[in-house]
């Protein structure tokens, strides 16, 4: 464990909790892509199946359980409890265009051709693009609530911090995982445009709105 990984994990946790609280407090999931949230629930489920097969640490297990639990709670709030506020018309990204190629890639490029390993690889690839329906929704409506941008910032920072963690681990432990690194780079690049808007607009107290 190093400082980048820990802050990355905490940033991830903050993102998840910010989103849950936003929906819960406002009793509304307006502006939130349910499709992205379903993809994240799939990501956690596929990746953390090792909860059933191996124990790493109390920290590891509890974070995994919290991530999975919160992901499903978010999906429940969007599609059941506050369904009336869900903006399905603007959440029109075709997720099969992500899931199918990513599934194929996971079968083709993985470390070991075994079910658990392929599911793990699938989750790494899928996570890198799972935010696209959300970003697509924002580009379609041209705006995002400030709290939603805080969520996206924390979520984007999490993988960015993991990139530093992998540099650290390479230098100090001689350890690297090409699948995670390449997917992590893709994931971070997808947030760059958003990071720019967040710093130049949201941090200066303006609402995030895109030119028409």
């Amino acid at each position: 464990m190093n400082i980048f990984r820990l802050t990355g994990d905490l940033s991830h946790l903050a993102a998840i909790i910010i989103l849950l609280l936003k929906i819960w407090k406002s009793r509304s999931c307006a502006g939130i892509s349910g499709k992205s949230q379903i993809l994240f629930a799939i990501v956690f489920t596929a990746r953390y199946l090792d909860l059933l097969t191996s124990f790493i640490s109390v920290y590891n297990t509890s974070m995994k359980v919290i991530y999975i639990g919160c992901a499903y709670a978010t999906v429940y709030l969007i599609y059941a409890k506050f369904r009336a506020t869900y903006d399905g018309n603007h959440d029109s990204f075709r997720v099969e265009f992500l899931v199918v190629p990513v599934g194929g890639l996971a079968v083709l490029i993985n470390h070991t051709f075994s079910p658990l390993e392929i599911l793990w690889t699938f989750s790494i690839y899928l996570e890198s693009v799972a935010i696209l329906p959300q970003l697509f929704m924002i580009s379609k409506t041209g705006e995002a609530e400030t709290i939603t941008t805080h969520y996206l910032f924390c979520l984007g920072m999490y993988r960015t911090l993991y990139l530093f963690n992998w540099v650290w681990r390479f230098y100090f432990e001689g350890f690297f995982d090409m699948i995670a690194i390449v997917a992590g780079l893709v994931q971070t690049v997808l947030y760059c445009d958003f990071f720019y808007l967040y710093v130049t607009k949201v941090l200066k107290g303006k609402k995030l709105s895109l030119p028409a």
Binding site: D50, S54, I56, N60, H111, T112, A180
Partner: peptide, 10 residues
Amino acid sequence: EEEAKLKDEL
């Protein structure tokens, strides 16, 4: 072993 090492990440 390399594999087990990575899986400690979230």
